[in-house]
Design a binder for these strands. Structure first.
Length: 279
DNA sequence: GCGTAGACTTGAGTCA
DNA sequence: ACTGCTCAAGTCTACG
């Protein structure tokens, strides 16, 4: 479900409500989303702990507790983190509820239950490979044109799967990859190592642009996404290609095409994003 | 080591 | 209304 701008909005929206509050109880409704430790251990270890901070890295949410442990939350496709008053109704698909000391609650809800919760010590971070091996964050000082160029030149895969690989750039997902490629006018099947310097520069700029605008617009609520307060984002109204099959390209009026690339629905403008035979 | 299909899981659909 | 089929914001594993 949520990509970096959506996760960022969730974290920014609720962190001030939950930081420095004590978890008085953890209610486990669908325990299979807890990957480690066991559900019982998870509940016991979180009871009476204070939430010191809530942060984001890539698409991961990192909740730091006052005993040094980290509650690592990944929403995958349909996970939600919702902050509510204790007397408010809970989501039908609630899996875990953290009851806080001030009669409020934080709910992890997930229709498909592909999301994951892991409570670990800081020494154990390397066990979560996806978190441990994340590449540079868009908009960060680490994410330079040179960094992107080095990664691209080491890769023989197509540009779309390259950008979806979190080891290269952290936080991009299916929507923002298609958008960044549309803005930089690069065909999704181009080989990563075939991009010219000029194209790399345009792609770098486009990634930062779509991520920045996605955050500013409160995320993309194409289907299930809601922020931590249950509100929709508005970036779905500004998409160039994603979910716009058969509609006119905003740059040239050609109709948007959809293909399946590495198992993912992929949208692009066949006129703006050409695939040359020699590339 | 690298790149690519398949698996996980459940509900929605300008479905048909 | 009910049925069935396709597709979905992500990542890990297995295989060639």
């Amino acid at each position: 479900m949520p990509e970096m701008p959506e996760v960022e909005n969730i974290v920014i929206g609720i962190k001030d409500f939950i930081e420095n509050k004590k978890i008085v109880d953890v209610e486990i409704i669908k325990g299979d989303v807890i990957k480690s430790p066991s559900s019982d251990e998870y509940r016991k270890l979180l009871q009476d702990k204070i939430i010191k901070s809530l942060k984001r890295r890539g698409k991961y949410i990192i909740m730091s507790l006052d005993d040094g442990r980290l509650n690592i939350i990944h929403l995958r496709m349909t996970g939600k983190l919702l902050y509510k008053q204790e007397n408010e109704d809970i989501d039908k698909y609630s899996c875990v509820i953290y009851h806080l000391e001030d009669k409020t609650k934080l709910i992890y809800a997930d229709i498909r239950r592909l999301g994951t919760l892991d409570l670990i010590t800081t020494d154990e971070i390397s066990r979560l490979k996806g978190l441990y091996t994340l590449g540079a964050e868009p908009l960060s000082s680490e994410f330079t044109i040179g960094y992107l160029k080095d990664c691209l030149n080491k890769s023989k895969t197509k540009i779309k799967p390259f950008l979806l690989n979190q080891k290269n750039v952290a936080g991009l997902g299916n929507i923002y990859v298609d958008e960044a490629l549309a803005i930089s006018k690069i065909h999704p099947e181009r080989k990563a190592n075939s991009l010219s310097d000029e194209e790399i520069e345009k792609l770098h700029q486009a990634i930062n642009l779509v991520i920045n605008e996605g955050i500013r617009d409160g995320g993309t609520s194409f289907r299930d996404y809601r922020n931590g307060l249950g509100e929709k984002g508005s970036h779905q109204d500004k998409l160039y290609v994603y979910n716009r099959k058969g509609k006119e390209c905003r740059f040239c009026d050609t109709l948007i095409t959809k293909i399946v690339l590495n198992g993912r629905g992929t949208y692009f403008c066949p006129n703006c994003q050409k695939l040359n035979d020699d590339k």
